Amino acid sequence: SMGQARALMGLSAQLDEELDFREGDVITIIGVPEPGWFEGELEGRRGIFPEGFVELLGPLR
């Protein structure tokens, strides 16, 4: 894990590789696949999402 982030708003996945989450969910960050995107894990599910949907809870490791 690289850190954690809290969802500022919900994301309804449009693509298979995207992660669904609700506002307030705390997501474990597991990677940065490309600039502007995070890869995360939530409730046993993994996927990517735009960084603008979340606030980091501390610096990434």
Rank of each mutant, 00 (worst) to 15 (best):
E34Q: 08
G44W: 01
R46F: 08
E51G: 13
R61E: 13
R22N: 11
M9A: 12
S12N: 15
T28N: 14
L56G: 08
E23S: 08
G58C: 11
M2L: 11
L60G: 10
M9Y: 11
T28M: 06
L60V: 11
L8K: 12
R6G: 01
G58L: 06
I27N: 05
E51M: 15
G58S: 13
M9F: 14
A13W: 04
F21A: 02
G36P: 07
V54I: 00
G10D: 15
D20A: 14
I48S: 04
P59Q: 05
V54L: 01
L19I: 07
V32M: 09
E17T: 14
D25A: 02
L60N: 08
L56P: 08
G44R: 02
F38N: 08
E39L: 13
P59T: 03
V32W: 00
V32Q: 10
R6V: 14
G36N: 15
D16T: 08
F53M: 07
E17M: 11
S12Q: 14
S12F: 09
G31N: 09
L15N: 15
E18G: 10
Q4G: 04
R61A: 12
L60R: 13
D20E: 15
I27S: 02
F21N: 05
V54Y: 04
L8S: 07
F21M: 03
S12C: 09
E39V: 11
E43F: 11
M9L: 10
D25Y: 01
L11Y: 15
W37Y: 12
E17P: 07
W37E: 06
G31F: 00
F38V: 00
R45D: 04
D20F: 09
L15A: 15
G36F: 04
R46A: 08
L8G: 01
P59G: 07
I30M: 06
L19V: 03
E55V: 07
E43A: 12
W37Q: 04
W37S: 05
M9E: 09
G31S: 11
R61W: 08
D25G: 02
V54S: 01
L15K: 15
P59K: 01
E55N: 00
F49V: 03
L56A: 08
G36T: 05
V32T: 14
L19F: 07
E18T: 11
G40N: 04
I48W: 11
F49K: 05
I48D: 00
L42E: 06
L42A: 05
Q14E: 09
Q4K: 14
P35K: 13
E51A: 15
G31M: 15
F38L: 07
E41D: 02
I48C: 05
R45N: 10
F49N: 05
L8Q: 09
G47Y: 00
G3Q: 00
